[in-house]
Design a binder for these strands. Structure first.
Lengths: 198, 198
DNA sequence: CCTAAAATAGACCCGCAAGTCCAGAATCCT
DNA sequence: AGGATTCTGGACTTGCGGGTCTATTTTAGG
């Protein structure tokens, strides 16, 4: 892809991704058409296929990558500094708040279910996200172990994996029921577990 | 729906649901067309719309209800008899096995994400499933508390909610990455938590 | 400036799949 | 038996949306 891209072109391309992401967040992947994206971003089909020659699928993948970034960004700066119990609590609150605000639309989740089956590229996006997320939690737990606030015997890697799963599940349930009760229970129970292990 | 339904008619209707469910399990909701279902179940468009006047959406909802039943059925008899640690372990193994076999296709999950946004009926299906699932786990925990194997102070309801979320998340990650590591970590950590609390 | 490349516009094509319709076969009921 | 009802088949319509094509405008840069 030795593609020449002027500043204006790059801006348009980004505008398309952002607009598509917003549209998807509001109305879902399935009901979002390329014409919708064009209307919203004040672009034309020509431009869309100019910047995404492989069409819809390529655009969705770009959106998925962007949304995956957001997932982690929105947990910062807490996620990167899980060195005290207060920090863990702040992180927990940030996660709950973020997903309560997003409500029942999880663009990333739907994108993955739509793309994941066919494209290995989409699977890679999810894989990397889960990996990074788990890595951050792992680092947090390990740090707390070093400072003696969590028992050293605890398997930090497995516990981090379990926490990622718990949050993911809480979000999924929030998505389909509208209630954040499960997400909160999952987070609180996870934190309680970390405390208990000591 | 004061609809007359002969025995033959009811059988055909069921055959359509089963065939659609199988097709969806194999190839996904998005790529399953009504013609696919007709071909597989040796029926015609006429029949399909005869039994599901509201078309595709109504059929998908019926399939979702059926799949929701399966989710709980496949965890039995373990889920109903969580009275010993061995039983919990057997349940854990059953869940892991079931989803490993299902692989990356979670018909229910995709059905919900496709239907959930629009239809409140689909939301109700999910809601009921989560509720019943959580109820069973709650009962199991409460029983273990009564027999003194789990600390009485533990909030059984919230813990059950957290476990449902954890399993759900593990399944979601299994779906998009193909690895059951997170599901297993989530289940094992949950059980460890129950044991630890004592 | 002037030219080549990139950006933009939007009309058009085309296939697919949901949904319609009607005719004919099987069945129920009394 | 026979009329009503339900069941079945499949050809047909229709709309939507992804993707193509070409003409025009804008920008880069020498």
């Amino acid at each position: 892809m030795a593609r020449a891209l002027t500043a204006k072109g790059a801006a348009t391309r980004q505008r398309i991704i952002d607009g598509a992401a917003a549209e998807i967040r509001e109305r879902g992947v399935l009901t979002t058409t390329l014409d919708d994206v064009c209307r919203r971003t004040a672009t034309s089909k020509g431009q869309l296929f100019h910047y995404f020659p492989d069409g819809r699928e390529q655009l969705l993948l770009a959106v998925a990558e962007r949304e995956a970034e957001r997932v982690l960004e929105d947990q910062q700066p807490h996620l990167g500094r899980l060195t005290t119990w207060d920090a863990w609590q702040a992180w927990r609150d940030a996660v709950v708040l973020r997903y309560q605000q997003q409500g029942m639309n999880c663009p990333l989740g739907v994108l993955i279910t739509e793309l994941g089956r066919s494209t290995p590229a989409a699977q890679a996006v999810t894989g990397r996200l889960v990996e990074r997320w788990q890595y951050e939690l792992h680092a947090g737990i390990a740090g707390m172990q070093r400072s003696g606030r969590i028992a050293a015997e605890l398997d930090a890697g497995r516990t981090a994996a379990a926490m990622v799963a718990a949050v993911q599940g809480g979000v999924t349930i929030l998505m389909s029921t509208g209630s954040s009760a499960h997400l909160e229970a999952a987070l609180d129970t996870s934190l309680l577990f970390l405390r208990l292990s000591r």
